[in-house]
Design a protein around this nucleic acid. Structure first.
Length: 284
DNA sequence: AGTTAAACCTGGTTGC
DNA sequence: TGCAACCAGGTTTAAC
């Protein structure tokens, strides 16, 4: 589910409320994509630092809290790298009830329980000693630039697209040219830019690359304003669903009229993912 | 090296 | 009503 807007909406919902919270306990449910990488018992004794985001990953710094009696050993600092996979969502609960069958991680703190619900369990919570150390650094290493990074100029984006021959939709999903677009926003951005999803990435002209980058930023920005998209599972840290999906122009709208020209929206499978597009408005 | 398929997992929807 | 087939926001890993 969660693409960049949903992950960022989640981050904004937990960052300030959790700032400085003391970790009291941690609980694991069924296995996620990767093991936690430490014993849950090692997490208490930390305080939560500012939550950041890189691509679709969240980074929850856990800072060591110095023992006052000097008896216990020094806590190692680090943090949790979290991913919501296809069906994950985080909730910050003031009154956490018994975990349900899809609640696979709880971080109990002095300022609420952060609970990961993820029916499909493609998500992950991984302990890392630092953001720039393994395993976090390894996972983040392959990510392309952030879409809103000013350093990502149209020229650089165009150059990145030139390095691939795969269809542009596939290249967007791969996240090497720019991170953050998943299946919904890749389809929507290509529609807004008037670019056919099957067009080979390296055949995109400089002006069209610039238009695609602008369309991607506009799409992600708009989704952010609307709290992301909720197809089924997603909700923010307060349990609120997103509403962007209601104004998608092409995503999930096969057979329905294109909002620009009225021609029925097409659906086809590309790299094992459904692609929605308007064959009239989106040119090769 | 770059592109594409397979794999991970559960549940809702569709169609016979 | 039952059941098989297909579909879903992602990304790593292995295979052409």
């Amino acid at each position: 589910m969660p693409e960049l807007p949903e992950v960022e909406v989640t981050r904004r919902g937990i960052d300030l409320p959790l700032r400085g919270a003391l970790v009291l306990a941690a609980r694991l449910g069924k296995p996620l994509r990767w093991p936690l990488g430490c014993a849950p018992e090692e997490l208490p004794g930390h305080s939560v630092g500012p939550v950041s985001r890189r691509g679709k990953y969240l980074w929850l710094p856990l800072l060591p809290v110095l023992a006052t009696d000097g008896a216990s050993g020094r806590q190692a600092g680090g943090g949790l790298l979290m991913h919501l996979g296809m069906s994950g969502s985080l909730a910050l609960l003031q009154q956490a009830g018994e975990p349900g069958p899809h609640d696979h991680f709880d971080l109990v703190t002095s300022q609420g329980t952060l609970r990961l619900n993820d029916p499909r369990r493609f998500g992950a919570v991984v302990w890392s000693a630092a953001l720039d150390a393994a395993p976090a650094a390894t996972l983040l290493a392959r990510l392309g630039p952030e879409p809103f990074d000013p350093e990502l100029t149209p020229a650089r984006f165009h150059a990145a697209l030139q390095r691939h021959t795969a269809p542009v939709k596939t290249v967007l999903l791969a996240g090497g040219a720019v991170v953050g677009a998943g299946n919904i926003y890749a389809c929507e951005a290509l529609f807004q830019a008037g670019i056919h999803p099957l067009l080979h990435s390296n055949r995109i002209s400089r002006p069209r690359a610039e238009r695609l980058l602008a369309a991607l930023r506009a799409t992600l920005g708009r989704a952010l304003e609307l709290g992301g998209s909720t197809l089924r599972d997603f909700s923010d840290a307060h349990g609120m669903a997103g509403s962007y999906q209601a104004q998608a122009a092409v995503y999930g709208r096969a057979g329905l009229p294109c909002p620009k020209c009225g021609v029925p929206v097409k659906r086809r499978v590309q790299a094992q993912r459904a692609t929605y597009f308007c064959s009239h408005c989106q040119k090769r």
